[in-house]
C-alpha cells in the first residue's frame, strides 16, 4: 500500500471524475442529470486546480476555483431557467425529444 500521496493520485482522481462526467453526458437523456454530469466535470477540474495550487503553493489556482464556482452558480441559474422554460412548453426535459432542429 502506498505510504504517500503524490500529485499523480489527484490527477488520477480528477481525471476519473472528469471521465465519469463525460460518461454521464453521453449516456443520459435527462437534461437535468446531464447538467449534473457537467457539474461533476467542473468539480473534478476544481479538485485538480486545488491540488496543483497546493502543490505549487500558488494561490492563483484556488482563486480560479472560486471564480469557477461563481460562474457555475450563474450557469446553473440560467441553465435551470432554460430547462424550466422548455419543460413548460413541451412537458419534457428529455434531450431526445428536443430534435425539431435538424438536417
Amino acid at each position: 500500500m502506498l505510504k504517500e500521496v503524490f500529485i499523480d493520485h489527484y490527477i488520477y482522481l480528477a481525471l476519473t471524475l472528469f471521465c465519469i462526467g463525460i460518461l454521464g453526458v453521453l449516456i443520459r437523456r435527462n437534461a437535468i442529470v446531464l447538467f449534473m454530469s457537467i457539474e461533476l466535470m467542473l468539480n473534478s477540474v476544481n479538485l485538480l486546480l486545488v491540488a496543483f495550487s497546493s502543490r505549487m503553493g500558488d494561490a492563483a489556482g484556488q482563486i480560479f476555483v472560486f471564480f469557477i464556482m461563481t460562474v457555475a452558480a450563474a450557469e446553473v441559474a440560467v441553465g435551470l431557467a432554460i430547462i424550466v422554460m422548455l419543460y413548460r412548453n413541451t412537458r419534457s426535459i428529455d434531450i431526445g425529444d428536443a430534435n425539431k432542429l435538424k438536417w
Binding site: V25, I38, V45, G79, M85, L86, I95, A98, N99, L101
Partner: peptide, 17 residues
C-alpha cells in the same frame, strides 16, 4: 427553446473541457 437548451448543454460541456 430547443436551440437554447442545445446551446446551453453543449456550451457547458465545452466549458468543462
Amino acid at each position: 427553446n430547443e436551440a437554447s437548451l442545445k446551446y446551453f448543454l453543449m456550451g457547458s460541456f465545452a466549458s468543462g473541457i
